[in-house]
Design a protein around this nucleic acid. Sequence first.
RNA 1: GCCGCCGUAGCUCAGCCUGGUAGAGCGGCGGGCUGUUAACCCGUAGGUCCCGGGUUCAAAUCCCGGCGGCGGCGCCA
Length: 434
Amino acid sequence: MYTIWTTKQVLQFAKPGDEVVLRGWVYRKREFRDKIFVLLRDGEGVVQLVFAKDRPEVYDIAAKLNIESSIIVKGVVKEEQRAPGGKEVHVSDVIWFFVGEPFPINPSAAQADSEYLLDVRHLWIRSRKMWAVLRIRHTVFEAIHEYFRSRGFYEVQCPIFVSAAVEGGATLFPVKYFDREDVYLTQSAQFYLEALIYSLEKVYTVAPSFRAEPSRTRRHLTEFWHAEAEMAWARLHDVMNVCEELITHVVRKVLDERLEELSILGRDTEKLERVKPPFPRVLYDEAIEMLQKMGFNVKWGDDLGADEERALMQKFDTPIHLYGFPEEVKAFYHKNDPQDPKRTLSVDVLAPEGYGEIIGGGERIEDPDELVRKIKKFGLRPEDYYWYIDLRKYGSVPHAGFGLGVDRLVMWICGLDHIRDAVPFPRDIRRVKP
RNA sequence: GCCGCCGUAGCUCAGCCUGGUAGAGCGGCGGGCUGUUAACCCGUAGGUCCCGGGUUCAAAUCCCGGCGGCGGCGCCA
């Protein structure tokens, strides 16, 4: 038997003359008259292999290898300035290999970042770009759990099959559920989290949400990962504090642990280093005023479109809290401000550099009559929300929470052009394969 | 739902405006090259120019219809 070295271990710890066994996939191959260079890729990185022609038993195998062929080799480590990483492995034995067909993705497709890469996504996830994104994504999810658990939130799991909308029925995906026709995929765990605070007080969940919005933008998926939290007794300012601490913690952890991956993606980490609490807190009214000064035709009561949001964010180089939206532009469950009832106690967190909304949250209505009044005002049927209304009848408390679009957060941290690249197998309005 | 763009080799694209025998790079295959960093050089195979109709002596190119794809807006995370 033999010990397997990773490429990373070879570059970090192997000494010249060490005999090592490595396994992985062919990342690049360059053939010369008397030797073949193979860049071997594994889950950790890349190291250069050298196959010499005076060892025909290994050279002849190397000659047959395609890009992405798999192989296990034994060889001797040498220091070599010309090799990537400063070391290379001179192969003495090929223990195992699989050649297969020529790899269908080539650099022109990769450089064009073309549609084709989505058709062959099951293969493209092997690329250095997707490798880097997926490792950062891993760390983002880890950091989210780490933050909530360190702050006394309990993790809970909520149903994916639901029978009422959170924000209205138009964007629900119906599901065939035996002989019933009123079952859908969840859009948000929020209502269930609101129920759970009466047991655990502070709860969170990280789960997929599904929205049948026919959106064709670089910021929308039909299936996305949602990190949601809900807190009993909390107010709007508590939500803002938790949001900025959470985002700061995630960004900090990625900067600490994923610098190599950020560098592969060409991310300007200076822009991430600026992310520190407190984030600027911008009242909706101030935003309207700023936009009017910039020449936008907006007035109090309007929702902010993508152009307005981008223009506003040009004034900031960190995320901001935008709070206090008018009642009409926010979903029915947002609590109106008792001091100013036309306004809700709501907040969006907007990411800089044009990435836009990554969080929506705020205080929820705690009074049952007020809740019913607002459900009706929004043209919805109270009977569809009977259990949600019920929560207000037994020991109702002020409470607040928020939902974070994790894929959008990953997109911004990685500096990606499209949310699809923040996800290994994205689902959008047309694409459900691979 | 609304607005815009695109469809030519396995992949990325040029050619279309101004109609006249189908092109390049990458990838494949064959050969060459003393160390490459998306190696390079020579050769070679590979096409229902999305589909249908029309105009024309002649259509990838012009016109009409269809199909497929992409981007943006709205909505949201």
